[in-house]
Write a protein that binds this DNA or RNA. Structure first.
Lengths: 244, 244
DNA sequence: CTCTCCTATTGGTACAGACCAATTATGAAT
DNA sequence: ATTCATAATTGGTCTGTACCAATAGGAGAG
């Protein structure tokens, strides 16, 4: 059904071109000014149409360069938590990681609660940016009590898994993780790190991870570009009961 | 860190007012025109700020009425698939459902493949809108081969669970479901049904459900207002291996 | 007290211009 | 062929106006 709204008509016309393969991933669209002329509408109207496509993850805009058709989404099992980047590497993607920040802070009440720490305990919090084929895809944050990991700064967490370091260097074997997943919009700084725009969609996964003894050891988040990743899960039912 | 962008400054100022409790869920913000005057900026700039807050799920705009602080998000286990609305009812929410459409169509290649049907098989596809406290929250779509469910139109699926009907009326006991989860933006029609705006964030869950014999029986989607629902999951690890 | 109609207010669409910031292309000099 | 500076092109921000569509409020009539 054709929209009555001009900007949606433009958006759908462009989307159709992409979906029909007239434009392939990586191709550049005509400029905003050219599209405005081509469709006989205002540049603002074109920008609004492109806003929609951008949020759908169908196109990406680069200031000074242009608007490009997006690469297909990556897929991640919702519980495929510890080995996501390995799986991608196995599939031929080039993965990278960069430690953006390392903070040593006094734990907030929330984190102390989560990690079963005394109030005021010292926390190490890492921020790591992961890339796929040189494109930033996820900002990882992980926090751990400093007393558990003396000297961890000396290990290169841009090339080693945090959990592997916990295991081999500190004898801490992670076993379970509890997560939540929600759609969010990226802040300005997050958007900058992920090379997208403020307000772009993100998928925020919060997690609390436990070792073999059931002790909470790590609290953290993964913030994905929402237009780049799709999550999968498989659930088993126990019984079917009336729901309404 | 304060943004340099005017519209982000306005957005953050408003967000702070909400987060500090100066405005409670359900409260109405000043009008766009009043905010423009108050902050000394253009109305367009205020609208851009409110765009950000709307996509974050912090506010909701109603044409002709105003802009309101949103209610807190509902939470749903990622695998809490069959009993979500029951859980909400148990927690005191008033839930509702409305059949928006029932289509009898020839199956597409994709659906035929998914459901293990011969090409051209007849499919029944239901569209149901679920509400929480009278607010639309999710658009459910479920498809099933017509031959499996003769006369199903006579059952009121706005008050009965689809799976319960399958079980009690047709002896089909659902047991497993495979799902994917992704951030999307709502189309115009979807936004209309969910009483939000085109381009608003959505969480799209696609699923394929199997009966006890492992036969695919139902294919469908749940499209949530992305600003209203957070998903939870808990995953168990098997081993920790180097990831990079 | 209720209903209807009209006006005002609200958010939404579309247009238009000016300017900024980032990137790319081009031409000249070496 | 390379490098550097400048101009052009690109998307992004901010302003402003006009009008549309939906809702709310108020006044008057019954």
């Amino acid at each position: 059904m054709t929209s009555l709204l001009l900007y949606m008509q433009v958006a759908e016309a462009l989307a159709e071109g992409i979906e029909q393969g007239l434009l392939a991933p990586g191709d550049r669209l005509s400029s905003e000014r050219a599209l405005a002329e081509e469709y006989g509408v205002n540049r603002r109207t074109v920008r609004q149409a492109l806003d929609v496509l951008t949020r759908r993850g169908q196109v990406e805009r680069v200031r000074g360069s242009g608007t490009f058709v997006s690469q297909p989404r990556l897929e991640r099992g919702a519980s495929e938590f510890f080995h996501f980047t390995e799986r991608l590497r196995e599939r031929g993607y080039e993965t990278g990681a960069k430690i953006m920040a390392l903070e040593r802070v006094v734990s907030s009440r929330k984190v102390a609660e989560d990690l079963d720490l005394v109030s005021g305990a010292e926390i190490l919090r890492f921020h790591r940016l992961r890339t796929i084929n040189s494109s930033p895809i996820v900002i990882e944050t992980f926090s751990v009590a400093a007393v558990l990991v003396p000297g961890i700064e000396d290990h290169d967490l841009s090339i080693r898994s945090f959990y592997e370091v916990l295991q081999t260097e500190y004898g801490i074997e992670m076993e379970r993780s509890r997560q939540s997943l929600e759609a969010v919009v990226l802040s300005e700084l997050e958007a900058q790190w992920l090379q997208t725009e403020p307000g772009a969609p993100g998928m925020l996964e919060r997690r609390l991870s436990f070792d073999r003894d059931g002790r909470p050891v790590e609290s953290g988040t993964d913030l994905y570009r929402g237009d780049r990743v799709r999550f999968n899960t498989e659930a088993a039912t126990i019984s079917v009961a009336p729901s309404l």
